[in-house]
Amino acid sequence: MERSIRFYKNAKHEWYADIPEWAGALDELQMVEGADDLLNWIAASANECNLLLADQHFEQAEILELVYIREENLGGGGDYILENFRGEVKNHRLWLCHVTEFVFKQLPERIYFKEISFD
């Protein structure tokens, strides 16, 4: 499964995923608990970025590894670790909520990603 998603910052500098078919609340699309830090690294000083996300490896992909599946009472979704990013050791832990399961139809063991441009 492969999917391109746009991420953007609002006026309060909070990151959100742009998923038009999402029928839930907007706050469920907010990127928090480390996912916002990752987007800041990717976007640098920009207020948005576009990522190609997949549950299968592709060329030049960065890798998020699932380390813990959260129970629903802890927010659901999963905790992932980004061991390396752009050739630098990070060991950065982040949480991806149940929206991840909506996008991938599961909680992938690995999520492969890279920044892309939408033309």
Results as ranks from 00 to 15, higher is better:
M1Q: 04
M1N: 09
M1G: 12
R3V: 13
R3K: 14
S4T: 11
I5H: 04
I5L: 02
I5Y: 12
R6A: 07
F7E: 06
F7S: 03
F7V: 09
Y8H: 13
Y8V: 09
K9S: 04
K9W: 05
N10I: 08
E14Y: 15
E14S: 09
W15G: 06
Y16C: 12
D18K: 11
I19Y: 14
I19Q: 01
P20G: 05
P20Y: 06
W22S: 02
W22I: 01
A23F: 10
G24I: 07
L26I: 07
D27S: 05
D27C: 10
L29N: 01
Q30A: 12
M31C: 13
M31V: 14
M31T: 03
G34S: 09
D37R: 03
L38S: 05
N40S: 15
N40F: 02
N40E: 14
W41S: 03
W41C: 00
A43D: 01
A43Q: 02
A44S: 14
A44V: 09
S45F: 03
S45R: 11
N47T: 06
E48Q: 14
C49R: 01
N50L: 00
N50R: 03
L51E: 02
L51D: 01
L51Q: 04
L52R: 12
L52K: 10
L53E: 00
A54I: 00
Q56H: 09
Q56A: 13
F58C: 09
E59S: 08
Q60G: 02
Q60Y: 05
Q60H: 15
A61C: 12
E62W: 07
I63T: 14
I63E: 11
L64C: 05
Y68E: 15
E71G: 13
E72G: 00
G77K: 04
G77R: 11
G77E: 02
G78E: 04
G78C: 03
G78Y: 08
Y80T: 00
E83C: 12
E83P: 15
E83A: 09
E83I: 07
G87H: 13
V89A: 10
K90Y: 08
N91V: 08
H92P: 12
R93E: 13
R93P: 04
R93A: 08
W95L: 09
H98K: 15
V99W: 13
T100I: 08
F104E: 10
K105Y: 06
K105Q: 12
Q106K: 15
Q106N: 15
Q106A: 12
L107F: 09
I111L: 01
F113K: 00
F113W: 03
F113S: 02
K114T: 10
S117R: 03
F118R: 12
D119F: 08
